[in-house]
Amino acid sequence: MTHEKLKILFLGAGKLLSLLEYFIKAGQKQSIELEFFSFELDEFCPIGKVANVIKSPKFNDINFKKFLISFIVENKIDIVIPTMDSATVVLSSIKKELKDLGCMAVVSEYNLCYIMNDKILSEHWFKENDINHPINSTSFPKIAKPKLGYAAKGISYIKNQEDLQIFSQRVDLDEYLIQDFIDSDEYTVDAYVDNDGNIIDILTRQRIEIEAGIVNKSISRKNDSIIDITKTILSIPGWFGPITLQFFCSKNNPIIIEINPRFGGGVTHSLYCGLDMPTWIINEFFSKSIEHIPYNWKAGVLMTRCRRDIFYDHCH
């Protein structure tokens, strides 16, 4: 039976209005009406212009899992897509249960989501899998990141040993990942792995301007060395859906920063360049094959972003 309508629930889409507009286009191409929902802490967020915003518990709340399953059952949700790291952890833990309910969770396996949500655990994972990553040597300066941090929140710059001593006196060092500061070009990778573990495509884009951990300006630029290491990483079983990877790279020497098993904040750049992930997700739900020629995306495309004003009338 052909669906004329799909119900898609996002977990924390918040400000990702442009991403949902790409989903709308994908649905229109297949004559499928899409109805969006998004779990948020703030009911008046930009995504509310195209989605039904549902105030929910925090994703790490003990009651969230029950809340999520009940909502999916009551509203007959077809697809769930996480857009925050903490959401990937809880969603992946009930992925098989949701499949039995006829709902597709677009998320990687639990062990990968759990590890990548924790910067210290992910560093151990990079070591175990022989992936080049920043180290913590005896030299300075250094960067200290909260192990459960996101969007560049809580990051501290440590200039010397004295700074490190002061920093260690005011925080619990077990809650931080400390690494050598690296001054290098930064790249984001947007990739998609299908439900059978096949890598559909990998796009590399250089980050030019960043604000609060989110890219404001980037350029799609093919980097074969980053693509090669990304293929190696994503060949490890367990990945599914959109995957975002961050790298330092100079002189064709990629150094992994982090992996987010979800859509990244600047993914619309890659969607514009040819990675039609919304269509691929819809096709996967209907068990359709993904027809796509990899590495044929537009290189040399500059994305620059601006603010968009969203208004809600009759708020008190």
Rank of each mutant, 00 (worst) to 15 (best):
F140T: 00
G27I: 07
A87C: 13
A152Y: 08
I178S: 06
E21C: 04
D313H: 15
F247P: 11
V89G: 15
F64Q: 00
R221D: 03
S220R: 10
C306H: 13
R308Y: 08
T279E: 14
N252P: 12
C45Y: 04
V107W: 02
G154R: 15
E291Q: 13
L245V: 00
K5E: 07
K142E: 06
Q206E: 06
L177S: 06
G274E: 12
I233Y: 02
M84S: 07
D85K: 12
I256D: 01
F248R: 14
K99G: 08
S92D: 03
L245R: 08
N60H: 07
G48W: 11
S70A: 04
P242E: 08
R307L: 14
H292G: 00
I293G: 09
S250W: 11
F286W: 03
W280N: 14
N198G: 07
N160Y: 08
H133T: 05
D61Y: 00
Y22V: 02
I166S: 00
F64R: 00
V171M: 06
E284H: 01
S225H: 15
Y192M: 06
L11F: 05
M303N: 13
D85M: 02
D194G: 04
D228Y: 12
G264S: 12
Y187C: 02
I143D: 06
I210V: 15
V80P: 14
T204Y: 06
A191F: 13
E291P: 09
R207F: 11
I256Q: 07
P141L: 12
V89E: 04
D228E: 10
G241W: 05
V80N: 04
P254W: 07
P278Q: 05
I310H: 09
S220W: 15
I131C: 11
A144H: 09
N260R: 04
I199F: 03
N111A: 03
L34C: 08
T230F: 10
A212M: 08
K119F: 01
V73K: 13
E109L: 08
H314F: 13
I229A: 07
W297C: 14
R305P: 05
H269I: 09
D130S: 09
N136Y: 02
R308A: 11
I281T: 10
S250H: 10
V53T: 07
E291C: 04
F140N: 12
G264I: 03
Y272N: 00
K95W: 14
D118P: 12
I229H: 15
I115S: 04
V215F: 00
N195W: 02
S220I: 14
D196K: 14
P57K: 02
A51L: 03
N283C: 09
E162W: 01
W239M: 01
I236Y: 02
L101D: 11
I219W: 05
K5T: 07
T230D: 09
I166M: 05
K76P: 12
C249F: 14
E162F: 02
L34S: 01
D190Y: 14
G265Y: 08
I115D: 01
F240Q: 08
H133G: 06
F263G: 15
I255S: 00
T230Y: 11
K5W: 03
G14P: 01
D85Q: 04
I166G: 08
G27N: 14
L6W: 10
F126P: 13
